[in-house]
């Protein structure tokens, strides 16, 4: 299988701290990758740099076989790379339905068309239904619970039918049932051909769902492989349990 996303030597410093230090990895098409590591190991920074929210100091990335020179969130999303955030981000003043509809890409000349055209509405309603949010379709997203906002953010990202979805801690701060729900959603979408890269802390979730597992420590990739191998890797044990 070919690499859908290839990251080469990404480096990013904040003052004296190297958040990413020549970090490289690849995500094959059709896989569900995990990005794990101790706190502060550079996982979210990697997401931010890959999606163009922060500029890298060095290194580059290739997405769908194309070198992305200056990653830009809007352009990348239109190429099929979507992401969620660690703290769920929704548009609090818009209804849940509109939150999802926004995910649909629009050409500039469609800007004066209906705010929520029929086909988009139906598609968004399907997604809300799938994520168990249909009852809240017309509620302002700001009124949803934390877990519901996480689901809504995920649903919105799927509206554009992305090729690769980066999920930043989809299971953080939600109850065990919600973790299972998230896993089901990811599995269903994966079965439909969507590739995932997931930052997560719940090892059980990662080990049962993800392959490959990429381990970062101090901004460097210290291990990469099947969950079973990574778990036994002495460097990984050291990073998590060592000093």
């Amino acid at each position: 299988m070919t690499a859908l996303l290839a990251v080469e030597g990404l480096t990013k410093s904040f003052g004296g701290v190297r958040a990413l230090d020549e970090c490289s990895f690849e995500i094959a098409e059709g896989s569900v990758g995990a990005l794990i590591g101790p706190n502060g190991s550079g996982k979210t920074t990697a997401f931010n740099v890959i999606t163009g929210y922060q500029a890298a100091d060095a290194g580059g990335l290739t997405f769908r076989g194309r070198a992305v020179r200056r990653p830009d969130p809007c352009r990348l999303q239109r190429l099929g790379l979507a992401r969620t955030f660690q703290q769920p981000r929704v548009f609090p003043g818009l209804s849940a339905l509109e939150n999802v509809v926004l995910g649909r890409n629009q050409p500039w000349h469609a800007l004066l068309r209906d705010r929520v055209p029929g086909p988009d509405r139906r598609r968004a309603e399907e997604l809300l239904d799938e994520f168990g949010l249909a009852a809240h379709a017309h509620m302002p997203a700001g009124r949803l619970s934390y877990g519901q906002r996480k689901l809504l953010e995920f649903a919105g990202v799927l509206m554009a039918e992305p090729v690769l979805v980066l999920l930043d801690e989809p299971t953080a701060g939600v109850n065990p049932i919600m973790v299972k729900t998230m896993e089901d959603h990811i599995r269903r979408r994966h079965a439909q051909g969507v590739t995932f890269l997931i930052v997560a802390h719940e090892m059980q979730f990662v080990m049962s769902l993800c392959d490959p597992v990429i381990v970062l420590d101090h901004g460097r990739r210290i291990a990469c492989g099947a969950p079973g191998e990574v778990q036994k890797d002495p460097r990984v044990l050291d990073a998590y349990l060592g000093d």
Binding site: T51, Y53, D72, P73, C74, Q77, R78, A82, R83, F85, R89, V90, F91, P92, G93, L94, E98, V101, L102, G103, N105, Q106, A110, L111, L112, R113, D114, R115, V116, G156, V157, A160
Partner: peptide, 22 residues
Amino acid sequence: TSKLGLALNAVRDDEDRARGLG
């Protein structure tokens, strides 16, 4: 009543996330 309004409201609520949604 148009997409433009929806996009502007999204900018108001969370401009960075709006960029990430294309």
